[in-house]
Amino acid sequence: MPKAARILLALVVLAAAVLLPRVAGPFWLGLVTQMYVFGLLALSVDLLLGHAGLFSLCHASFFAVSAYTTAILQVRHAVPTALAAPAGILAGTILGLVFGLAVRTRGVYFILITIAFGYVVWGVAHRWSSFTGGDNGVTNVPFPALGTLRVESPTEYYYLVLAVLVLCTIGYRVLVASPFGLTLRGIKASETRMRSLGYHSDLHLYVAFVVSAALASLAGVLYVYYNRFVNPVAASFPISVEVALMAIVGGTGTIVGPFIGSGIILGLRNWVSSFFELYASVMGLVFIVVVLWAPDGVVGLVVRLWVRAVKAGTR
């Protein structure tokens, strides 16, 4: 697509997003807000998966640690949003600095180690009940407020999330198009070649991991103010793996992909669980179907079907 068309498309999507609260009821507005939040989390996973070739299954950890930190500061210590939110992001990022050790491994080892790391965080949230509130978690998180500027309704919060989202995607775009982003792609394509060219691949991957953790932490803050509570489910393995699925369903290595995937998975969940009890089975089936028939995501699948249809038409 030419650049002008891209910008035009982005503006149309943005205009639709801005106008959405005028036409959507509270249910749909809530669902779309969730889609933004989890799309952002999926985007953070995709920075590693789509650009650096690392498949992390511990991103629920950064998300949850930041959500817990913000919630605990805001609820128990009455710390204002202006401090509680950055503190949450900082806490998640610091965890990213520690878990970033995982980049000393690649492939299966990386996947397995991140699973185990993620589990440690879930375990602490679940067991350390005197601090985290155990399975009940932290409740009664207020809407965010900045001095006298207060968010007072889900619609206002929707706009706040949208604004953060736009800033993040612009920043993300700049990052992946920068020399740093290109180096990551080079490492994904051929690490040995990048090394022999003199690039310090471990260091690049470590930085990418920490940036990705920071983005996941930001999503965690947006999540806790939307959800108004946080419990160990936020840190659980199913969240990490579902978010990775979102990125894959939408199409990795793109910016819109994770958001499309997030919309599809959350929409599917809401729809299926309204009439079918075995929701987890349906999700399991989605995993299998995606892996076997749509490994390049929805975008890839549409392209493939299109190509096939065109071929059949010309035959």
Partner: peptide, 27 residues
Amino acid sequence: RHTGDNHLAQVLLTVGVAFIIGDVALA
């Protein structure tokens, strides 16, 4: 068998299988 040597695909696929087994066992 259909995932070949792709570990990412294997992980996602078998996680899906585990979700289904767990859900059926719960039922």
